[in-house]
């Protein structure tokens, strides 16, 4: 099994506040790993470090055998939890503009996802609802053929119809034979059946991690129930 991401003792401090306190985490090829935890547990910070837009204070991280940076971003797809699209662009415009940066952009796939998600290339992004913008972020992330998708809270703050559509895209576009997904969420119920492995984060530390099915058997409970027990 190929190791795509490996973090050892990853630490991030903002002033005196710790966002991550020595996190060990791995992602192997062909698996969907969920970083679970409430808001502020360090999930987003971890993903931002993995993509290289936040620098760790300590520890090591290697993604696809590289240190995070512009070079790595050519080969990894990232979707932020934030509403970070250029609102003055049209849907088609942001797709084309983003595509111009990548060699692995798959136009046919992009078109298919846009249609599946009911997005109109001529709509202005500023006129889209939050759910639609969430769909667009997903479409952008999956328009590329990469080995690793990093999805930060892909479903949070989004209406149920869009959540369901986004989940469908993730399942449709995920190819275990050549890609992996690392996603963070605090909405465990929605992704319960999607995760191969889970990592529970709390206050920047790993509380519990393991194979989703094994955890279900050990605790005789769903991942969602374990989540509620851990943080309740």
């Amino acid at each position: 099994m190929n190791r795509l991401l490996r973090a050892r003792g990853l630490t991030k401090r903002y002033g005196r506040k710790h966002a991550l306190r020595g996190v060990d985490l791995e992602v192997n090829s062909g698996e969907v790993v969920g970083i679970l935890g409430p808001n502020g547990s360090g999930k987003s910070t971890f993903l931002k470090i993995a993509i290289g837009i936040v620098r760790p204070t300590g520890g090591e991280i290697e993604v696809l055998g590289q240190r995070p940076g512009a070079g790595l971003r050519k080969h990894v797809s990232y979707m932020s939890e934030n509403d970070y699209l250029y609102r003055w662009m049209r849907v088609g415009e942001i797709l084309e503009w983003t595509a111009s940066f990548y060699d692995d952009w798959n136009d046919a796939k992009s078109q298919e996802i846009i249609e599946f998600l009911g997005l109109d290339r001529d709509s202005k992004i500023s006129s889209l609802s939050r759910g639609m913008r969430g769909r667009l972020k997903t479409a952008i992330a999956f328009s590329r053929d990469v080995q690793l998708y990093l999805l930060d809270e892909p479903l949070s703050g989004i209406d149920p119809a869009s959540r369901s559509k986004i989940l469908d895209v993730i399942i449709r576009e995920y190819r275990p034979e050549n890609s992996s997904i690392l996603l963070s969420t605090h909405l465990v119920m929605d992704v319960e059946n999607l995760l191969d492995r889970v990592v529970f984060l709390s206050d920047g530390s790993v509380l519990l991690q393991g194979n989703a099915d094994e955890l279900r058997s050990q605790h005789d409970a769903s991942i969602n129930s374990i989540f509620i027990q851990l943080y309740g």
Binding site: A70, R73, Y78, S80, N82, D83, Y84, Y86, R87, F101
Partner: peptide, 14 residues
């Protein structure tokens, strides 16, 4: 202010 700095920085650019 528009949070797009994250979009820009997450592109494969330095």
């Amino acid at each position: 202010d528009n949070r797009t700095i994250e979009y820009l920085k997450a592109l494969p650019v330095n």
